[in-house]
Amino acid sequence: MPFVNIKTPEGALSRTQKEEIVHRTTDMLVEYFSEAARPHTMVLIEEVKDGGYGRADEIFIIPQDYRANEE
């Protein structure tokens, strides 16, 4: 069973964008593994709260401009 785990800042993606990522990622994996993989493919999008991750010793807070406007 193909499994993809995507971590993204909380609020960075709208529901519509997450749905698109799930569909496009599934389609990509089907190209590699065949259509038989579709019903067994799992795509998990995890949202990480602000301050829950860092880069180069800096805690990351997503800027307001990068937050998705929920649809």
Rank of each mutant, 00 (worst) to 15 (best):
D27K: 14
E47V: 06
P63M: 10
K7C: 11
G11N: 09
T8Y: 00
L13K: 14
A12H: 03
Y32P: 03
V30F: 00
R24Q: 15
T26F: 09
D65Q: 11
G54W: 07
S34P: 04
E31D: 08
S14N: 08
I21D: 00
K18T: 05
V30I: 12
G54C: 09
R67C: 01
P39L: 07
I45G: 00
V22D: 08
L13P: 05
T41E: 00
G11F: 03
E70A: 14
R67P: 07
K18D: 05
Y66W: 11
Y32N: 10
D27N: 15
A56M: 13
R38K: 05
A37I: 02
Y32M: 11
I59E: 09
E10W: 05
L29T: 03
H23M: 10
Y66Q: 13
V30K: 00
S34Q: 11
N5F: 06
R15K: 15
L44G: 06
F60N: 01
L13Y: 10
Y53T: 04
L44A: 11
E10S: 10
D27A: 15
R38C: 02
R55H: 14
V4D: 00
P9M: 06
V22I: 15
D57G: 12
I21R: 01
E20L: 13
H40D: 07
V43D: 08
